[in-house]
Write a protein that binds this DNA or RNA. Structure first.
Lengths: 150, 150
DNA sequence: AGTCTATTGATAAGGGTTATCATTTACAGA
DNA sequence: TCTGTAAATGATAACCCTTATCAATAGACT
């Protein structure tokens, strides 16, 4: 765990150094806050977490730093939760799609090789060069379905 | 065309009547404006179109009516265009997914039976009951790729 | 240490969407 | 057709999330 954290810190430092940017206390704080949260986090949640580590962090800085983390490949934008954007870890966290329960909000992350292959076929069919995709399946999870049956 | 228009008007009237709501001039205007536009429309575009038909229409009314159209099954929310939401026709307009060019914004609507089948398999695998999905493929279209090659 | 420039945090501004509210309008019933 | 009542309207303000502004601060290099 600690090793991974150091990896990500090193990645961010390299990303910053490569373009003449600086590794600052605020950026460290936001990185630690983000890494300490689980998948699918709003910027607001990162702000709260960051302020638990350092109450003085400004919200503008968190917005800016989360964008940096995305550019550096440490975070990636997940499904918009209708309104605010959600982010998830991107380092050591392979590509996957989401299966979301519309009742309780539970999220299952999955990867389906058949779907991935079929998507490649669609790209070929229309002559597009692939640059990523977003697949969200919505449904009712077993627990919520069981409650319905009662 | 005119028949379809009358169909959709009748659907909206039924939807409204069934819950004690009223068919008004403003709602007619917004419906006509929406139907007169092509796929993937922002609310702002609907406002403009509605005001061409009747300059007095308020923007709050358009927002409210578009939401009504979604509830009535005449419109459906498409991919968020990062910022504002986009809507498309839902009546007589079968389910499909989107393949979007990240350079020029061109959108190809497609349906792939293999992907649909594989998605059903994912639902079964996790015991979810399906209630819809959203698949957006991003890439570079042939035209933009050709420009790159120059 | 000094210098130069990126970064910060507070604040204001922006864009899209929703709430408020007095006035108007549609619809049902007389 | 007239009337009563509740829904709908449009103007406006408010709201949320996000970005821009800017004077003050703080990295990183010499």
């Amino acid at each position: 765990m600690e090793y991974a954290l150091r990896d990500e810190r090193a990645l961010l430092e390299k990303y910053l150094r490569d373009r003449g940017l600086k590794m600052t206390r605020a950026r460290e704080t936001v990185l630690d806050a983000f890494l300490g949260l689980e998948s699918h986090v709003s910027v607001e949640a990162v702000i709260e977490a960051a302020r638990r580590l350092d109450p003085g962090v400004g919200q503008a800085t968190v917005f800016r730093t989360v964008k940096l983390l995305v550019d550096a490949g440490l975070a990636r934008e997940a499904c918009h939760d209708d309104g605010s954007r959600l982010f998830e870890h991107a380092y050591n966290h392979a590509h996957h799609d989401h299966l979301t329960c519309t009742r309780c909000g539970a999220v299952v992350e999955f990867i389906d090789p058949d779907i991935e292959r079929s998507q490649e076929a669609v790209y070929r069919r229309y002559g597009f060069r692939s640059s990523g995709h977003r697949l969200e399946l919505y449904g009712v999870c077993p627990d919520c379905a069981a409650k319905d049956a009662e």
